[in-house]
Design a binder for these strands. Structure first.
Length: 236
DNA sequence: AAACTGGTCAACCGCTTCTAA
DNA sequence: ATTAGAAGCGGTTGACCAGTT
């Protein structure tokens, strides 16, 4: 059994006070990021290291962009979500100044509903046609209605997550743009013009071989064609 | 004015992944 | 190759607020 990340009984929870923020900022300015486990004690904070890390990354870090998302940011989030699914940190990485938490919240509170309103399933970015034409031969296929719950739902995590990239572009399965790109062009996702390239960050030959075996440590970079797509223009 | 409802978002929880010994 | 600790990630929660009845 793993030990908890911190001694919970001696830590504060909930909203951060101004003083706590200042302590954290001052400490990181002096000593830099990292070593989150020992940071709270060193900085004189009664907080869990994870809590400190989250506070810093999401709110205290310099160059954090606050406030409403611009239209081009929305477009980019939608395109990236179609490609990557709920990989919020990867999506946020393409949006300077935005955090994964912010992108996730914005998706759940704004973009998801926006897509639903224009008849697009936010889970797979396809037109919601089967809502009008239920398929009786597969009564258990209710992924879109079951998984399109709001952020505040009590549905267990397993029922509310996008599945990993699938190899088939099957209309009965929740899939995403990446899966469609692997196969023949997906007829229900005609508007995504995403140019995905995967590159390896110049490791040694021996290491490369090792990495290929383990399928780990690959840096994936994406070149995205961000020209407006018909779908995105729809709800402007 | 009070109760209710729904939306937003900061923060927490638990699991996974990474890394060093 | 294994293991344990640390870091990172995504899902979920709950407090707060605004709008509605």
């Amino acid at each position: 059994m793993r030990k908890p990340c911190c001694d919970k009984q001696d830590t504060n929870k909930g909203a951060w006070s101004k003083q706590e923020d200042e302590k954290l900022i001052n400490y990181i300015r002096k000593h830099g990021e990292g070593c989150w486990r020992t940071l709270p004690q060193a900085a004189g904070l009664l907080r869990c290291g994870k809590s400190c890390r989250l506070r810093w990354i999401n709110y205290l870090r310099p160059n954090i962009k606050r406030g409403n998302f611009a239209e081009d940011e929305e477009d980019l989030i939608i395109k990236l979500h179609a490609l990557l699914g709920n990989r919020w940190s990867l999506i946020a990485g393409r949006l300077p100044g935005r955090t994964d938490n912010e992108v996730k919240n914005y998706w759940n509170s704004h973009l998801r509903r926006k897509l639903v309103n224009i008849g697009i399933d936010p889970n797979n970015h396809r037109l919601i046609s089967h809502k009008l034409l239920p398929r009786p031969e597969n009564p258990h296929n209710s992924n879109s209605s079951a998984s399109a719950t709001s952020s505040g739902s009590k549905v267990p995590a397993a029922t509310n997550t996008n599945p990993p990239v699938k190899s088939r572009c099957d209309n009965d399965l929740v899939s995403d743009a990446a899966s469609c790109l692997e196969d023949e062009p997906c007829s229900q996702l005609p508007d995504l013009n995403l140019d995905l390239t995967i590159s390896i960050s110049a490791p040694s030959a021996a290491k490369l071989e090792d990495q290929e075996k383990t399928h780990k440590q690959f840096n994936i970079s994406m070149d995205l064609d961000l020209s407006p797509s018909p779908t995105l223009v729809l709800f402007r």
